[in-house]
Amino acid sequence: MAETRGPWARFLARPNEDPVKALGMAGLVALGAALTVSTTATLLEPRQATNLEAARAARMQAMIEALPGLREVMEEAGVTELQSRLVDLETGRVLPDEVMAFDPERVARDPGTGIELPPEADIAGIGRRERVAVIHLLERDGALALVVLPMRGAGYQSTIHALLALEPDLDTVAALTVTEQGETPGLGAQIERADWQALWPGRRIADDSGTIRIEVVRGTAATPYEVDGISGATRTGNGVTAMLRFWMGPWGYGPFLDSLAGEGAG
């Protein structure tokens, strides 16, 4: 009788106190769980990515709505959306290529299209950066009215994605919108709230000597370069500070902003 049974039946027939049975059951349940979770995640990933992309676009739209007077400016200029441009981050030059929807993190990971950041430059904790970035411009009567720069940086427990809109002086913040984050609900996640983001318009990035001073402070802001922090979310605030300082600096959009400023003067 015992010889006719397969290994599976013999396994199931072992007493539950048997270590082989315990390890075997643990392994089988873990295997089943792993297969289920990975299959679901892989199958649903495209749909979730579409949803996230739509949410990002909606937030961009919401930022346009929230900027005072921007809607009217756009209507006057006869445009319904911002123009997107490709920018070579190293040289700061605008590239003539057509802009397609793209995921900066994926582009940065690819050795052909992204670069490894030296640790001392990587203050935002993103590891790699894309060579070419998509930025958004609003032009009115041939002059620049607004520059919108996408950025990302490490927060407390997630990567924070944001859009920074700059006034034509390339120094005054017109708006900051957090487009994606996974910070602690109720604490760091408050950076997504409209009332916190409403603190940003009018803040200045750098002082007159060109030193980048923008900072999320603990407590209440005292200078035009400071923004109130969220209590209980110091590290999220530090992450936002580091993100802005990195992307506004020489390793981020610095060269592009310099070349824009040069064009304006010339």
């Binding site: 199931l12 539950n16 106190e17 048997d18 049975k21 315990a22 059951m25 643990a26 349940v29 873990a30 769980a33």
Partner: peptide
Amino acid sequence: RHIPHAIRLILQITI
């Protein structure tokens, strides 16, 4: 019937 008593909570939580 095949859940060993000693690791039953871990298996339940995993599922």
